[in-house]
Computed example of a mutant assay.
Amino acid sequence: MRALLVAALLAIVTPPVAAKRPVAEPAPRKGMLQGPFELHSRIYPGTVRRYWVYVPAGYDRNRPPNLLLFHDGQRAINPRGPLQLPAVLDRLIADGAIPVTLGVFVTPGNRSAHYPETLGLDNPDHRVAEYDALSDDYARMTLDELLPAVARGWRFAAEPARRAIGGTSSGAIAAWTVAWRHPEAFGNVLSFIGSYTSIGLTIGPDGLPRTPGGDTYPGLIRKSPIRSLRIFLQDGTGDLDNEHGNWFLANQQMLKSLEWANAHADAEGRGGPRYDIAHRWTGGGHSDADGGAILPDVLRWIWRDQRAAETR
């Protein structure tokens, strides 16, 4: 009886234990997305493009951050799209998973005096002429016009190992072309569903090629000196198959050519750089979705040998 009385008293005077509430993960410090700005090109007269600059939290102009330049910027920054690059950078930088990084997100050019407000997420009309051409024009526009315009407001790293350029579809081959031609400017490439196909091919009246298409790259890679480049390739097994080519086969050809170039240089005992390559073949089609799903992992891989503290 005495034991029952003690238990009853304890039940009255002992406060109930509050249930533990889950602790919410703190939101990352957010960078600021500046823009859009307009860039009129001398290299592509009569065209205009938009660009945005992501300024990371903790940006210090005395410690220039890494640089990520990404094409089709209108989609790269879309907060409801699959890429959402500003949010991805916020989280990775806050976690210390990648160095502090300045983002530049640029659209292709449009033939107009000002960038049309009505375009939204659609492609401007000069995209093929810029992104799918193998000439040096787009690289010159990027290095001689776009980056100097950005540099007037923000500093960023000069070392190619601390600069990455990327895109999806034709934006991916544009990124590859810039880095391939100018490895002294960009040492890293992010390529999602890359259009290494014949979009840029034009044929003359004699039936012979007048300008090459992106399907030329596998042969060029095999017959050219190796560049000091780190490249990540992604494509989906359900990607496009049309008059320009088969996207999945084209991306596999790119991978095989890069691997062969490395193996051939090793077999001949040649010194010099080797391509640093990784890839992910996914199950999707011609969409940014698969690339967006793995984007954080790709950025970690690109800058895996740079501790965040080293570039702060």
Score class of each variant (00 low, 15 high):
3 A>L: 15
4 L>Y: 05
4 L>P: 00
4 L>M: 08
6 V>Q: 11
16 P>F: 10
25 E>I: 12
39 L>S: 09
40 H>T: 12
43 I>P: 06
45 P>H: 08
46 G>L: 06
50 R>K: 15
51 Y>W: 11
56 P>S: 07
61 R>H: 13
62 N>G: 15
64 P>G: 10
68 L>C: 00
69 L>N: 00
70 F>T: 00
82 P>F: 12
82 P>G: 03
83 L>S: 00
84 Q>A: 09
88 V>R: 04
94 A>F: 11
97 A>Y: 01
97 A>I: 02
101 T>I: 01
102 L>V: 07
104 V>H: 02
108 P>F: 11
108 P>I: 01
110 N>R: 02
114 H>D: 10
122 D>E: 15
123 N>V: 08
128 V>G: 06
128 V>N: 12
129 A>F: 02
131 Y>I: 10
133 A>W: 02
135 S>D: 14
139 A>H: 08
143 L>K: 06
152 R>C: 05
156 F>R: 03
165 I>D: 01
169 S>D: 05
169 S>N: 08
170 S>E: 09
171 G>R: 03
173 I>G: 13
176 W>F: 15
176 W>P: 04
178 V>R: 05
178 V>P: 04
182 H>F: 09
187 G>A: 05
187 G>F: 02
189 V>Q: 06
190 L>P: 00
192 F>R: 02
198 S>R: 14
199 I>R: 14
200 G>F: 08
200 G>S: 12
202 T>D: 09
207 G>F: 12
207 G>S: 06
208 L>P: 00
212 P>Y: 08
216 T>V: 14
218 P>F: 06
219 G>N: 12
223 K>A: 15
223 K>F: 13
224 S>Q: 14
225 P>R: 14
230 R>S: 09
232 F>N: 05
241 D>C: 00
242 N>P: 03
246 N>T: 12
251 N>E: 10
253 Q>A: 15
253 Q>I: 00
255 L>C: 08
255 L>A: 15
257 S>N: 06
259 E>N: 11
260 W>A: 15
260 W>K: 11
264 H>Q: 13
269 G>M: 04
278 A>H: 08
278 A>S: 14
279 H>R: 14
282 T>L: 11
283 G>H: 12
284 G>M: 07
287 S>R: 10
288 D>Y: 14
288 D>T: 01
288 D>S: 04
294 I>Y: 02
303 W>G: 01
310 E>R: 11
